[in-house]
Amino acid sequence: MSETYAGYVAVSAARPGGMVTLRADPGNGKVKTALTKLAGALPEQRKLIGAEIAGQPVEIAWMAPDEWLIFCPRDTAADLVAALDKALDGLHHLALDVSDTRLRFDLHGAAVREVLAKLTPADMAALPLAEMRRTRLGQVAAGIWLSAEDRAHVIAFRSVGDYVFTALCHAARPGSEVG
């Protein structure tokens, strides 16, 4: 896997970061209070927000009504799990370090929405910034979000990393602009 592909949108494999999955029911008032206290805020449905947990900068993505994926500096994932376990002590939850489960790819360029639309049935033109769209990318599951109009990010399972990177490069090949 080459590091960066200079297509009409640049495609690169992101440096590995930390990821923690959290399962808990925010319908339980105690869970919600504990998490809000810990992180300052929880993302609304489908949203991705920046926050700080235990002194570390994190991004929290809404994955399902009872599931979040928290991006953190790689070496702080274990501490983050511990902090979550502590905050939710006695409350039904599951926090796991899943930093190696998924790979992240970054897309940079004016046409990031268009390139992704070649591979996903999601309405890329309508995807708001900072919203996690879990969808199909080619033939695999992926999560897609935009941090800026010209910056998109893709997470996919580690085992299909080569497939995802190659598919993104194919879609970003110069001369294949849809316009």
């Binding site: 449905q45 489908r46 399902a64 009504p65 049935p121 999601a122 309405d123 769209r133 879990r134 969808t135 199909r136």
Partner: peptide, 12 residues
Amino acid sequence: PYCGIKADETEL
């Protein structure tokens, strides 16, 4: 009904 996404059949 959980995430409010209008999903394509191939996502289901």
